[in-house]
Amino acid sequence: MKFGIIVFPGSNCDHDCYHAVKHVFGCEAGFIWHKSSCLDGLDCVILPGGFSYGDYLRTGAIARFSPVMNAVQAFAKKGGLVLGICNGFQILAEAGLLPGVLMRNSGLKFICKGASLRVENNTSRFTSAYTKGQIVNIPIAHADGSYYADDDTIKLLEDSGRIAFRYCLADGSGAPDAAPNGSRADIAAILNEAGNVMGSMPHPERACEATLGQTGGRAVFESLLKGFV
């Protein structure tokens, strides 16, 4: 399986994603400069975390105009797998590949910590290696991760099983303040209608190795690989 990791000016989790897919999971991987428009031969495109264009103006608002985003749109339309992590999720939302927006955290501060998540959908290309309702720990690190969409969109996401992960408490229960960033419906990760695009504020690439203390993100990559055997 071949991964392409897009490098926007200001991406800073590009090397982490590369390391995860290449060295932890042994896949083919390469970096794609944001001015490129060629995604040929790739099975999955990752938009990594970071601060593309310094997050100036609004997170993801400038990066969505990078030349590579036209190619990403076309790639997604053809059914190619697209995973946006953190800043990558913000860019996908700005680009309209996923509904909703990511707003400033409710506490107004950057939050870096392990987050408990409940797997809501285990049938997608990104989550099939989890069990439904499984509680996993995957770190978050963002200042703008509060997911917002209008009531109809939230309902649509819920009814169509497009919420991949929800924030929860360590025991798996939901609570009024389960989302550390104030996300509506405790949303941490969502899928597009076709199920081939996922945006996730938590960083699965940071939770793939026991050495680093957390392995809750492994199954995201294992799910992707499962589809390619």
Partner: peptide, 11 residues
């Protein structure tokens, strides 16, 4: 330190 990204670079 929760306001600092202490995990980026995955090392």
């Amino acid at each position: 330190y929760r306001q600092y990204d202490y995990m980026v670079r995955t090392d």
